[in-house]
Design a protein around this nucleic acid. Structure first.
Lengths: 344, 344
DNA sequence: CTGAAAGCGCTAACAA
DNA sequence: TTGTTAGCGCTTTCAG
């Protein structure tokens, strides 16, 4: 008493399996008499027929799955993106397979290999580095790719990224408006497009707004993490560089600053202001609530999903890239600088 | 120039496809001459052979996928569980398909239906209600299930849940030790096992510790959400019930309390102490840092993955259920009660 | 230990 | 519009 097959349905409806197949598939239903179609559909329903996806995939060489390559799902940045992707993929009949790379190239290679074994029809990649041979290689092999959040240099594939430059500009204007003149940028990893673009935008803004230029006012974090953020800030503090505000590469780095503040008894925002980037959940409940650049995570997911579907359905299209607009969410971690700069 | 098939490998190795199949599959490799096997394997490698999973699945009727049914991936509780599951499933050759129900029964039904269409070999379910006919139905149909976090009454399937009762006991002892006598429980939904077990544990603890018993000191939240937590607390405050501490059903509910404190100018922990449940990320950075019951999320995922694999490989085994031990993480949201209770 | 042959359930030419 | 036929790539009897 196993699951009913297409033949069972066909028999029940008194037609050939091929006809049943055509009737059941909306794409080919037009080829079949409306009445027969109805009869077949009814038979399928009454038998509780479910098409066997393996037989179909074996025949069509299409899997109905795509891969999502993330650094780490537990980073709160990603779940909303995943939901966005699934909300457009699901209705189109696709499912997403999620893998985590933990920022490890070997692991990434292995994980993507396993996705390829599962015959994913495309990849949504959130782990792109500026220099990322693996992605070039995949693209050359004909794998359909959509990049989210970050991009790879010289790789001609669609991407959905936040407008990093404008985001930083917003943050810098806000700080300058409060009277800050010496702003520290705790930059993200410079081998990522986001890290680099944000650092460049910081430098542009410094110049444009007439703030103090000082190479010691940029410190790179080696990871987008709380811990690396804290370490970077400690390095800067040890150098006795003077500053009254921090623009962090992202929220996690900003959280690392909070740790250092606690550890050294620094008052935020009274002594030092901080701006984050991403607007992760629950930032409004921090001590102090973090001012940050807000990103439309869910929309990034939606767009990325749409792009991947497009490139599956219309492979020869020229890659389109989207820059999503950002906004600044001002909370309690930014204030005018103290009368006398306390650090330096 | 399409991907090499098993026949290509067989030809290259000078054997029949059937032999190649046996050589390549570790399970059946014993049936074949060691040398031939080696030759086949080498041929496969040099051709870059990747077995077609659809052909295999079509033949074996096994998909190598399982479903994960979550309320909402953006709840920070779930990503670590997902990672735990994937870390045991991946090495065993399985992938997980994640769906979100948003606590909507219809959506749940649809999503699970789509997982069934994809022939998942089992389901890890985090959306269980105490009374959950759909799960009974799935179980009756022979679907392999593992419940995480929450359970369903009278459903004989394996489960991995936190030891809710002990967790609440820990929280209550801590508060009683600080001198609190009137403790409010903002309970989670009573149609979930976690909500109910925690509420019962609260009542037990009140009695055991000799605290004040008062039915108005338990208020149910209709969802495990910040917003519902806030609303529940507002209802209690309006009734002028006296209390000096809150044990929240989970961290999100506790966060809702923070909102109400801010809105009404209530000092935490000076006027009211709060304890959460789950130990979500970043709770240490809240204002004040939240004291909470810590759950080993990742381990829950690991165990659930293992259980599902077991029940796939050894279907007739008696369902085993695991209760994971918890601990209390004391932070800044709990303190001795004020000299005179300010509320009531 | 290896080969031959059949078939998992579906779809897509092709023919009628 | 419908049926016939063949085959996607693999595994698994069954012979040898």
């Amino acid at each position: 008493m196993s699951a009913p097959t297409l033949r069972d349905v066909a028999e029940a409806a008194g037609v050939h399996a091929a006809t049943a197949s055509r009737a059941l598939n909306p794409e080919t239903r037009g080829m079949v008499n409306t009445d027969t179609a109805r009869r077949v559909i009814r038979a399928a329903e009454s038998l509780g027929y479910r098409p066997n996806p393996f037989a179909r995939s074996l025949k069509t060489a299409r899997s109905g799955t795509v891969g999502m390559v993330l650094p780490d799902l537990t980073n709160p940045l990603f779940p909303p993106i995943v939901r966005g992707v699934e909300d457009v993929l699901g209705p189109a009949g696709y499912s997403a397979l999620i893998v985590n790379t933990d920022n490890d190239g070997d692991r990434e290679k292995a994980q993507i290999g396993s996705l390829q074994s599962r015959q994913v029809e495309g990849l949504i990649v959130a782990t792109a580095l500026l220099d990322h041979p693996l992605l070039h290689q995949l693209h050359d092999q004909g794998m359909r790719l959509v990049l989210v959040n970050r991009r790879t240099e010289g790789l001609e594939v669609p991407s959905v990224t936040p407008d990093d430059a404008t985001g930083i500009e917003l943050a810098m204007r806000h700080l300058a408006g409060l009277g800050h003149r010496r702003v520290l940028h705790l930059a993200g990893p410079q081998r990522t497009s986001t890290g680099l673009l944000r650092a460049r935008a910081y430098e542009d803004a410094v110049r444009r707004l007439g703030l103090v230029e000082d190479t010691r006012l940029v410190e790179e974090c080696l990871q987008w993490s709380e811990d690396e953020g804290a370490q970077a800030l400690r390095r800067v503090l040890e150098q006795q560089v003077e500053f009254t505000a921090i623009v962090a590469g992202n929220d996690l780095i900003a959280l690392g600053c909070y740790d250092v503040f606690a550890e050294r008894g620094i008052a935020c925002p009274e002594e030092i202001s901080v701006v984050g980037f991403n607007d992760m959940p629950f930032l409004d409940k921090l001590r102090p609530p973090l001012t940050t650049v807000a990103i439309p995570h869910y929309d990034i997911g939606l767009e990325a999903g749409r792009m991947l579907l497009e490139s599956i359905e219309e492979p020869r299209r020229f890659p389109r890239s989207i820059l999503l607009p950002l906004s600044l969410t001002v909370r309690g971690s930014t204030a005018p600088p103290p009368a006398v700069a306390p650090h330096g």
